[in-house]
Amino acid sequence: MEYYKSIRIFVGSKPLILPGSVVIIVNNQKEILLQQRPNGSWGLPGGLMDLGESYEEVACREVFEETGLIIQDLKLLGVFSGKDYYCKIENGDEFYSVTAVFLTKSVSGDLRLNQESKELKYFSPLRLPENIKHEYKGFITPYIEEIVS
């Protein structure tokens, strides 16, 4: 059972602090890989931390699970947290995310979909899809600032 699910047994839907990682995977054209979720929204591959994992381990595990890609040489772009990262989901569960955002250009393997992904596609960071979640736009901003400067 995933760690946060085991905690929910005790706290119900009360707010939790949930650490996790997402990864900006960049190809040779400086495009970034986005994942379309089953609900149609786009975001970065990544997920929540399990007990004993580092942020880097979360990033590598989640990217492999969600895309089939093996990533290396992670560069930390930032850690995003605070009141702007509060969420209440459809079932009433509340949480504040603490998200480490990594960048990598070191990728191997072949893209493959899983049950969490409707589509995987590379986009120009200056032409992101309209239905990308707000927090992901914020996560991508440091990369855009890096390539524009």
Rank of each mutant, 00 (worst) to 15 (best):
R8S: 14
K121D: 01
K88S: 11
T104D: 11
A100D: 05
S13E: 14
I9Q: 15
G52I: 03
N91L: 02
E90D: 08
W42L: 06
T67M: 09
G43C: 11
F80A: 04
I25Y: 04
G43E: 11
G82E: 14
R112N: 14
G109A: 13
F10S: 12
K105V: 02
D50E: 15
I147K: 08
G138L: 15
F95M: 12
V107H: 00
V107L: 00
M49K: 15
L103I: 11
K118I: 02
Y143R: 01
K5W: 06
L113Y: 05
R8K: 12
Q35P: 01
L111D: 10
E56M: 05
C87R: 12
I70R: 15
L34C: 03
L74Y: 13
L103Q: 12
Q72E: 13
F123E: 12
S106F: 00
L51F: 09
L18H: 03
N114C: 15
E130M: 05
L120M: 07
F10N: 10
D110G: 07
G109V: 09
G138Y: 08
V98W: 14
F102W: 09
V63Q: 00
G46V: 03
L18I: 15
V98H: 13
I24W: 06
D93Q: 09
G40Q: 04
D50Y: 09
N39T: 02
G78Y: 10
A59Q: 02
Y3G: 07
E62N: 04
I7N: 04
G46W: 08
E53A: 06
E2A: 11
I132D: 07
G92Y: 12
E62F: 10
K75M: 13
L48R: 15
M49D: 07
S54F: 06
Y143C: 01
D93Y: 02
F139Y: 15
E56K: 07
K105L: 03
N114F: 07
N27P: 02
M49P: 06
E145V: 08
Q36S: 04
G52R: 13
P125A: 08
